[in-house]
Amino acid sequence: MKKVLSINSGSSSLKISLFAMPLEKRLAKIMVDYSAEAKQLVTIKLPQKSLVAEHYTEKATPVELALKLLKKYQVIAADQEIAAVGHRIVAGGELFHQSTEITPGMLRKLESINELAPLHNPANVAGIRDAQQLLPNCPQIAVFDTAFHTDLPPENFLYALPMEYYRKYKVRKYGAHGTSHRFVAQQAATMLHRPLNELKLITLHLGSGASMTAIKNGKSCDTSMGFSPLTGLMMSTRSGDVDPSILVYLLKHHAFANMDECMRILNQRSGLLGVSEASSDMREIEREAEIDPQAALAVKMFVKRICDYIGSYWLELGGADALVFTGGIGENDSHLRELVSQRLQCLGVEFQSAQNQRRDLPFDFATAASRARLLVIPTDEELMIARDAYKLITAKQLI
């Protein structure tokens, strides 16, 4: 048995899980919220124990805090027990097509493409450097969200721009959330008792960030996020698809001062928050929707854009064996799932409203006669990271 640490670094939080591999037993799950400057909220969940929350005011990095907690609660006795560390990286561009060991040269290449995910990659790199310093003799593995989408056909990843921009600047669709889409696709195959390489799936990762992927025979053939994680579906604070002429128009009319402010608005003030003008949290928006027309409009727009992509991917795949809901909204919001499912009846997709209310994930809420199964599957990006890290270091005999 080897202990593998999975690190999922974000711009204001960090998720860490420690697994016993290859048993895939989660020994601890830690969340570090360092959005507040004065203190860090750290929660740790251990098997068969209640969630523990602690506040730290000391100046320590999130990974350092996590290691202290693992020792404090006797999950590990020493850092040396950790055999490998896997890191989630949002954007690998065209440089990285699969999970890989992190070396100094690889890290320099990774930093050269920070622009592809400016809200995420710098935080991912910071997490890597932190772990390298704290665990200097431990193999570090990068697991890329974009890697799952590297097999997209050119007609699906290219933009209708001069080809020079692709050749010179590598402007293309890269997608994101690939670690999550890949995980739930594998879980869907298990639930359906069919090989993944025989399935046609539409996976819906619906959370603060939201994306959808068309998966055929185990491979991503199209995905909603594009050159960056900004485009595609509308999200909590991100705009999703927008006519670029709008941005030029608004810039000319001084709606924002410069392109940096424009990107801040598109990333942080748009989406559900921008339309509802009330909240970026779908739970709050749905509560307000009963009395607030703007909140109701935000929900309708979100549902419509999801269904637009489902229709596109249904044609891309030639039908679907299953739709898979995951992410914070996809897993927990039965009302949203029902609104989406109602619009799919023209495709022969039928759902059971009572079954859709279940809390014991995973489950299928389609009727027996439905042309596609409706699966709700909790994602586990940290487990996917641990699987890749363990597989790679075992193949390379790094442990």
Results as ranks from 00 to 15, higher is better:
309 Y>Q: 06
212 M>Y: 05
294 Q>A: 12
271 G>E: 00
290 E>K: 10
303 V>I: 12
276 S>F: 00
293 P>R: 01
249 Y>S: 14
203 T>Q: 06
320 A>G: 09
241 D>N: 13
253 H>P: 04
194 R>C: 11
292 D>V: 05
262 C>T: 13
273 L>R: 00
284 E>I: 07
259 M>N: 13
238 R>Y: 02
316 E>S: 10
293 P>Q: 03
262 C>Q: 09
279 S>E: 01
292 D>A: 08
244 P>M: 13
194 R>H: 11
260 D>V: 12
194 R>S: 14
205 H>K: 11
320 A>V: 13
236 S>Q: 05
277 E>Q: 15
266 L>C: 04
226 G>T: 04
307 C>E: 10
312 S>K: 06
251 L>H: 02
308 D>C: 09
211 S>Q: 04
210 A>V: 12
288 E>P: 07
261 E>I: 11
223 T>D: 03
236 S>D: 02
268 Q>M: 12
225 M>Y: 03
180 S>Y: 09
284 E>T: 11
257 A>Y: 09
306 I>N: 02
295 A>C: 11
315 L>K: 07
184 V>A: 01
194 R>K: 13
302 F>K: 00
307 C>T: 14
224 S>R: 03
201 L>Q: 04
197 N>G: 10
209 G>I: 05
287 R>H: 13
192 L>Q: 08
184 V>F: 00
182 R>L: 14
262 C>A: 15
264 R>F: 13
324 V>P: 00
221 C>F: 09
304 K>Y: 14
275 V>G: 03
216 K>N: 10
236 S>G: 10
198 E>T: 15
277 E>H: 11
281 D>M: 02
314 W>P: 00
181 H>E: 06
327 G>L: 06
311 G>I: 05
295 A>N: 06
295 A>Y: 04
191 M>W: 10
275 V>M: 00
222 D>N: 13
224 S>N: 04
274 G>R: 00
179 T>E: 06
214 A>D: 02
248 V>Q: 07
306 I>W: 02
283 R>F: 03
318 G>R: 08
181 H>P: 01
230 L>Y: 02
213 T>L: 07
305 R>H: 14
290 E>V: 15
184 V>I: 00
268 Q>P: 03
300 K>F: 08
182 R>E: 15
201 L>P: 03
276 S>K: 01
307 C>H: 11
249 Y>R: 15
318 G>I: 13
309 Y>H: 08
267 N>F: 08
227 F>P: 03
291 I>D: 07
292 D>T: 09
221 C>H: 05
261 E>D: 11
249 Y>I: 15
281 D>C: 05
239 S>Y: 04
186 Q>D: 14
298 A>C: 10
296 A>L: 08
254 H>L: 04
189 A>R: 06
257 A>I: 14
198 E>K: 14
323 L>D: 04
263 M>G: 07
